[in-house]
Design a protein around this nucleic acid. Structure first.
Lengths: 88, 88
DNA sequence: TATATATTTAGACAAATATCTAAATACTTT
DNA sequence: AAAGTATTTAGATATTTGTCTAAATATATA
């Protein structure tokens, strides 16, 4: 959970996730969408990967990134637990 | 959303929310549960309040804090949106 | 093989963050 | 009114974080 909350606590990273919602993209394609250097984007992608929010696959010289939403189930569970037990 | 993600990105603050799940507590009672100074806890409570995750009410010299989970609905919506549109 | 393209790694730096102690503020009690 | 309790505010400091440029690595192509 620690890595998950950390990864989500950045606007750029959240926007990357939203970009990947529609399609898989290469690191370069992702970087194009932001006014941020490629190394910085690479760093954000690394954090997203550590949080298991994205997966990556190398194809030739490109690295394709994909959204992985299964991990978000844990977040929803955490929230629901907080809401449900509130009045017990 | 910015304040919400920020507030949740800290173990102590998440634990404060879990404490408040069962009952309202004063700032001092919350501080007792952690090996952290009262001013630091006060600061955490301030961040939680800014994120609208807790509300506070002064009663005499005490300040009671309560959990507010309604704001978490926004978080769940954000997650669900990310999950749902994934393959459209 | 040499050069170009894609991406990551390394190192530096400024800004943000979590923590502390000391002091200020607010309320209660003697 | 003075002293005690509860909480917050202020200011300092070490750590973490987001960003950059330069360099390294990996793959493709001429």
């Amino acid at each position: 959970m620690k890595n998950l909350f950390k990864a989500l606590n950045d606007k750029t990273r959240r926007e990357i996730l939203e970009l990947l919602k529609g399609q898989d993209l290469t690191a370069g394609e992702i970087a194009e969408r932001f006014n941020i250097s490629k190394p910085s984007i690479s760093h954000h992608l690394d954090l997203l990967k550590r949080a298991d929010l994205v997966t990556s696959e190398k194809k030739g010289q490109f690295v394709f990134y994909s959204l992985n939403t299964t991990i978000l189930e844990d977040l929803v569970k955490w929230v629901i637990n907080l809401k449900n037990d509130e009045n017990e």
